[in-house]
């Protein structure tokens, strides 16, 4: 299973991509990642959850899960990123095996 989280916008307007491949993780973390993806409700969300609300400089997230030839991508605003989905995003970023890349948008 591959999980990638693209965070866009914010005051800086930077794009930060965090990617993890569960094949490269210890078995325990692989199982934990799968359990968290399952709990996140990601597969039940529409491709674009929520719309642009009021305010400025908040983040937008794109969460993509690839597994056994299938893939699911969901775009979600910072306001909608709550509960188990927010926990998943935090968990992926915390994994030592995750790679993180920051750059400008549009590249």
């Amino acid at each position: 299973m591959k999980v990638s989280i693209v965070r866009r916008g914010g005051f800086a307007g930077l794009v930060t991509t965090t990617t993890v491949d569960s094949a490269a993780l210890p078995a325990e973390q692989d199982a934990e990642l799968r359990a968290r993806v399952s709990r996140s409700g990601l597969l039940d969300l529409p491709a674009r959850a929520g719309g642009p609300g009021p305010g400025a400089d908040l983040y937008d997230y794109e969460v993509r899960v690839e597994d056994r030839g299938g893939a699911r991508t969901v775009r979600i605003g910072e306001r909608e990123l709550t509960g188990p989905l927010r926990d998943l995003v935090g968990y992926v970023a915390s994994l030592p095996g995750a790679t993180k890349r920051t750059g400008p948008p549009g590249q």
């Binding site: 866009r8 916008g9 800086a12 794009v15 642009p52 937008d60 400008p104 948008p105 549009g106």
Partner: peptide, 12 residues
């Protein structure tokens, strides 16, 4: 830029 890229590049 498309809408999903920083709301069409507002910070760019």
């Amino acid at each position: 830029l498309p809408d999903h890229e920083d709301n069409g590049g507002v910070h760019i």
